[in-house]
Write a protein that binds this DNA or RNA. Structure first.
Lengths: 341, 341
DNA sequence: GAAATCATTCAAAGCGCTTTCAATCGACCT
DNA sequence: AGGTCGATTGAAAGCGCTTTGAATGATTTC
């Protein structure tokens, strides 16, 4: 069923039918009802390409998907995407995934922009001075960064307070008497990891405790990295009595390492992990339950979608968008007072 | 830069330029070169919507994304998507994700088809007699099922040999002397889980061993389910000496339960888990290393993309597409001879 | 009662491509 | 020489929608 047919069925012009369907005010209410009824009856759906061509808007937002970076291997990513989708669904906006090899990423963004395939894009996993910010700004393709790119160019971003989260968590451990605290971080190419390390160091400094560089390490956020780094830390003498871990996935490995060393989590070693609220990594289901810094990555996805819509549909100025979300510190069974020796 | 401008820059008609760019044979080679050079120089990119409108093809394939089913929470899904993307990238085909609430799924497929947003779709996690197969067939929207829908309607599918995989794995355990073997399966709504259970039972039957229904259980494939079901099995008397587990994620929980019971994996209890080759769940990195039935879900994604292209671009008949992939049985440290009691 | 205003509706002009159908120009054939 | 054919190019007609500018009656206004 095409607009033309629908119009002739109704004995109306395409113009009127189109307006009725799109909610323009100048059409008679009675006419609009007739049109709406007919559209439903014939299951009419406007052709997406035609509409896009006519309006110049694509009705889609883009994500460039590096096929070989770890973004993809990452459950966080899926969860974020789910949040995104939840919001976008309401306005029937599609997500266009454009896979791209690591080197071609910039070209892919360019392609998306020039071929007007999407109205806006999302930047995930920003690095320091991320070149994508400059590119997109130059291309005039609206975007929201999930995280912060720390770029000289002002841009729209939504981030969680990583510094504050890890500062509070560290402070909590210090208050429990811990002095040797290890940090198992994500890769410090990414801004969130830098911020967390800063929070960690700030808390130590504020307490007059010197940071031990041998107890600060980073890596991709996998179970395996968690295991390896924790095992390394525990081999130090004296060993750390508490651990700050950047993801629940890593905390799984960390826990394995702690057990392998014959130690008990929450007694010999305390741990606080960052929890992005991923359904299959539930801190309450762990044994012992895991103390966390918590912020739902899914909710962030929803909000980023919302912001994107505000920019594209309502013309909101991107540089007015800077949201920093607070992070909860949830104390559970994996933290306890520092053991005395 | 628009086609029109480009053409006038070159002193050619749009027709010729369009043909040159799209590789039609009737244009002079010299002319084609000039056009290609100019296109590169001006960084010309055809407008995606216009092209789609003109050709009637959307240059995208669709995935309906149930926002509240567990498909999403699932790393398998991401990995599959990565494989898909890898292949689609080559032809600059987009993936359109259409989020949808569980109830609306069918409507979303319908919308995708009628608005010709995509040229084809992918069906994941098929259930027995999956209604989507009938719907898509009726709508005339090409699709490939990842898995098998076990529907009366013939359709394109790619699946791994789940029955064979679990049959072989079970046989291997039987050959090692195990007689009490537990099965921790994915939800038996899904065809893959049914096939695995069948393989398991077939192997037992072939060996003349009666299946113990108390040692067969299912659930969503999470760490938590793995823990819970394993703990339950180990409480039986006599307890199972071996376990077949449907995912690496579950095997993590299973391992925890085994340890909690004071047992040693690979000695007191053997385990074989299904490995979809997810980068952050590496069976070689586990302690002990995990015996698995292995088939790369990413490779499956790549191949599904390939098949989709064959249907859409080359007009291959969907009902000629039935691929059943064999599954490797990889024996590592988590399996050993049955303990004698 | 004529002019002006308002509420509705429509015809037609794009949006930027692809593709059909014709036109042109030498080369080739009889 | 007149006609045919193959190679190359172009003009114009869509693809299905939105939107501009105009038209039509009906309703007010002076």
């Amino acid at each position: 069923m095409r607009l033309k047919e629908l119009a002739s069925h109704l004995g109306l012009s395409q113009t009127t039918v189109s307006r009725a369907l799109n909610g323009y005010p100048e059409v008679n209410e009675e006419t609009r009802q007739r049109v709406l009824d007919a559209a439903r009856r014939y299951d009419y759906r406007p052709n997406a390409s035609a509409r896009r061509l006519a309006t110049g808007r694509s009705g889609a937002i883009g994500i460039v998907l590096p096929t070989d970076r770890n973004l993809l291997l990452d459950p966080h990513y899926v969860e974020f995407q789910a949040g995104l989708g939840e919001r976008l669904m309401k306005d029937e906006i599609d997500i266009v995934l454009s896979p791209s090899r690591a080197g071609d990423e910039m070209a892919t963004y360019r392609r998306m922009a020039v071929s007007s395939r999407v109205d806006a894009v999302i930047l995930s996993s920003p690095t320091v001075g991320d070149p994508r910010v400059a590119l997109l700004t130059e291309l005039g393709l609206p975007f929201v960064v999930h995280g912060r790119a720390d770029s000289p160019i002002d841009h729209a971003w939504l981030d969680i307070d990583n510094e504050g989260a890890f500062r509070h968590a560290t402070k909590h451990l210090l208050d429990l008497g811990h002095r040797r605290i290890g940090l198992i971080n994500g890769e410090t190419r990414q801004t969130f990891a830098i911020d967390r390390e800063r929070g960690f160091r700030n808390a130590l400094a504020a307490h007059g405790v010197a940071a031990d560089e041998r107890l600060i390490a980073e890596g991709i956020m996998t179970d395996e990295t968690g295991y390896r780094l924790t095992a390394r830390f525990l081999a130090e003498a004296p060993r750390p009595t508490a651990l700050l871990v950047s993801s629940m996935m890593m905390s799984l490995g960390a826990l394995r390492a702690i057990r392998s060393a014959g130690l008990v989590l929450g007694r010999d070693v305390s741990m606080i992990a960052h929890d992005d609220v991923i359904p299959f990594l539930n801190p309450d289901a762990m044994v012992p339950t895991m103390s966390t810094t918590r912020s739902s990555i899914r909710a962030a996805g929803t909000r980023v979608a919302e912001l994107l819509m505000e920019i594209v549909a309502d013309g909101r100025a991107p540089d007015s968008i800077h949201e920093l979300w607070p992070v909860d510190l949830v104390i559970r069974g994996s933290t306890g007072p520092a053991p005395r020796d």
